[in-house]
Every structure is written in structure tokens, then in C-alpha cells.
Design a binder for these strands. Structure first.
Lengths: 221, 221
DNA sequence: TGAATTTTTCAATATTTCTTCATTTTCCTT
DNA sequence: AAGGAAAATGAAGAAATATTGAAAAATTCA
């Protein structure tokens, strides 16, 4: 999705460290070397601002104030002034975090991601996709060519285990152990029975029979 | 408003510092002195968790993992282990911030407020709308086709959690953990009971039963 | 205390799971 | 290639289990 980060910082070394590290992490960077430029470069497309305190022309607190007056974008302050008074002043300006120099780029990235994670809307649940089949594990849905197929619990678990281990053959006993539990006392044929129903519902030859051994879902070639 | 903060910390001195400072700031505190207690004390009503790393029984990372598995509540880690490795480990567990000891209570409070401010801002509107259903979270009202439906506390929470996570299946145990708390000793059937009443009041098939698994509110297509 | 809510309990109902068995397919032996 | 044995499939009915609805008991709150 490529989020834009505005970095307001006059120290060239730090600019280049951030450039290397954050661009590798997949962010798009916008640099500004002083407070005026920082305010000028800020716009709605910016997802997060990294702001130094000691800056030419307008200091970080000033930039923060201006940006805050028109946007609720996350702001991280980055500075050599590690004393408490400055930190408190930053938080009063409604920044999101304060990182004293020297800092670890890794930690900065983590903090950024912690903040951005909160912002991101779509939290897709866990999914298993195989050919034209889609299993939504959190929602307990199964779709075949986009239309939902309603499975019973046993059918769902059978499909899930086999899809999670594509290419692996499961003997009936293995499936029994994993789904019914190791101490369950049921006929081994129960597996066949559910598999038959599953196959009928899925209407497609996903599950192969390995005669004399068990069942398998082939790996996608 | 009076937000609840869960503090998982075994050091009595720190407990008492936080007690003084945060209670004065208007927060309601819940203390836990070890990991197990921390997990037990956590529930939906908690707005933020302050978590020590070195804890008896289960360490902070473990507690974080358990809480994260069922909730997106903000978590701040608080610890004597200031090294980078531990910090990174914390962020990998999706915490929101990491504060090394010794820490300034003022700074902690600022960080808490920065995080909670975000949370409140994103809950802005405080409304959940789904089809012809409208939940007003601040006012605790629910409207179905414009006419108000009066829900009890438990009914309200059930609907809220499920609407906040449309498309996700909740097992009864998950709902129990989130609404009643992990250590509540009640029959699992209580969930069915409230759900039945909720369904009757809402007069519309919003909540689906996933037999053998739990309940789900489908995503709007 | 009284009303509302929450929790427990239980019977009725619905659905799934399991067993059984006849049928079909596959594989092996001759 | 034919026959027979083993394995897999399909289908139907029985058993087991989960869910619902309702109502009684317990608890909470005003």
C-alpha cells in the first residue's frame, strides 16, 4: 500500500540512515530540512510525521502545533534533548511518541508500526486459499468459486487440516487422531463418510484417494 | 468516563507510585501481582494495560500474547530490561509502547494519554451501524429501524463485540472470556440464553449460529 | 423490598455424527 | 484377461450431540 512518511530533520546522517532503513521496510519518504519546509511538505497523503526538535527557522514544537491545527496525523518526535521537560512539552503538543537520540532505527520502525497498526482499517482474518477454494478460518466460511459452501464442523476440520498440509498423505488414523483425538473410539470408516460429504459439497476433485494409504490434497503446481 | 487501567506488576513500590499518580489523574486501577492474575483480571472493561516483563508465574511476553489473542487493547510494557532485544520482542507482540525503568510517572501518564487519545479519536462517533441497526455506544442506546430497543448490559455487550468484529466467529468461551472475564465461573449456556433474548428483541436474523463452533454476525456484502 | 437482570436448568427440536451394509472400483494373482 | 480379494464409495437409518426456547431460581440494583 506504500505509506508516505514525512521526515523533518536537518541532520544529513540521520536522513540517510532513515532513508536506508525505512525505504527497505516499504515506506515512501518525504524529506524536509527545516521547519518551514516541513510545514510546506505536509499534506493529507502523509501517514506519519517524524519530527526533530532542533530545526532551522521553526523548531519542532512549532511545526507540531501547525500540523496539529489541521490534522490528527501521528507524530513521532526525534531529538537529542532527552530531558523530561522537553518530552512533556512534546506530549502536551499531542505527539504520539518521543524518541531520544541516539536511537535505534529498528526501534523507531517498531514504534512507527505500532502506531500505524492502530490506524489501519482492514484486518483481514486468517485465510487458506487453494485453487478456486477459499477458507476463512476466523469467520468459519468456505467459498468455492466465490459462492459460500456451508460445511459441518467435521467437514471443516478435515478440509482445514488437509489444506494446511498440501501434498501430504493422511491415513485415516492420522485424521482420526488429529480431529477426533487420540483416545476417540470410533469406526475408521467415519473418515470416508465425512470425506464423501465434503467432496459432494465442494464439487471439484480436490481430495485424492491414495488407495491402501489414505487421502491427500495435491500441491498446486 | 473513568477509564480502567490494568497494572500487572509485582514490585510494590512501583504499584504504589502508580496508584498515587494515576488515581489522581482520574483513572480507575486494577492491580495484578503476577502473570496469571494479570490474565485473570483482564476483561472488556479495561482500557489499557501496563505490563511488567519480569513477573512471577508467566512473564510479560506471555501475558501480552494471551491478551492480544482476544483483544486489541493498548498495552504498555514497563521494565528494567532496557536492551534492544527485549524491546523488539515486545513490539513483535504488538505492544503499543515500551518504557524502561526507572521511569518518570509523568512521562508514563503522557504516553498513556497519547495512546488513549488515539483510541478515543478512532472511536469517535461512538456509533456502530449495521444494516438497519444502530448502536450508540456512549449513550448505550440501540435502534432498530429508528425505534429504540432496550437492551440489558449483557445483551448490549454481546451485540457490541460481535458488531465490532463482523465476519468473525466467536465461540461461547471467547465471549465468556471477553464479557464475563477469563476467571468467571458460569455455565457456558449463559451465552445462549442472552443471545436468545437479544435475537428476540432485535427481531431480525443478524446473529448466525455456527453449529459446533459458536456465533457470528455476517459482514455486509 | 420489589423490579429487573442474570444465571441455571430442562425439555423439545434440529442437525450432525456415526454405523452399517450394499455397491463399485482398484489391484493382485493366476 | 478373468476372477477374486481388498479397499473405497454411497446411502440410509440410528445414535449422539448441540441449539433453542422457556421458565424457574438467584442475584443485583435502586
Amino acid at each position: 500500500m506504500n505509506e508516505k512518511i514525512l521526515i523533518v530533520e536537518d541532520d544529513f546522517d540521520i536522513q540517510s540512515i532513515l532513508k536506508n532503513y525505512l525505504e527497505d521496510a516499504g515506506y515512501q519518504l518525504v524529506f524536509a530540512a527545516d521547519g518551514v519546509e516541513g510545514i510546506a511538505r505536509f499534506n493529507e497523503k502523509i501517514s506519519l510525521v517524524i519530527l526533530d526538535i532542533m530545526l532551522p527557522k521553526i523548531d519542532g514544537f512549532g511545526v507540531c502545533e501547525v500540523i496539529r491545527s489541521k490534522s490528527d496525523v501521528p507524530i513521532i518526535m526525534l531529538t537529542a534533548l532527552a530531558d523530561e521537560k522537553n518530552q512533556l512539552k512534546g506530549y502536551a503538543g499531542k505527539i504520539d511518541d518521543y524518541i531520544p537520540k541516539p536511537f535505534s532505527a529498528k526501534i523507531l520502525l517498531c514504534k512507527m508500526e505500532a502506531i500505524l497498526r492502530r490506524r489501519r482499517a482492514s484486518d483481514e482474518g486468517e485465510q487458506l486459499i487453494y485453487k478456486n477454494l477459499k477458507m476463512d478460518l476466523t469467520g468459519h466460511h468456505v467459498f468455492c468459486d466465490g459462492t459460500e459452501v456451508v460445511l459441518t464442523q467435521k467437514e471443516f476440520e478435515l478440509l482445514k487440516i488437509m489444506l494446511e498440509n498440501k501434498g501430504k498423505v493422511f491415513t485415516r488414523q492420522m485424521l482420526l487422531d488429529r480431529i477426533w483425538g487420540i483416545d476417540a473410539y470410533v469406526e475408521e470408516r467415519i473418515v470416508d463418510s465425512h470425506l464423501k460429504n465434503l467432496r459432494k459439497k465442494l464439487s471439484g476433485s480436490y481430495i485424492k484417494t491414495i488407495r491402501g494409504v489414505g487421502y491427500r490434497i495435491d500441491e498446486e503446481k
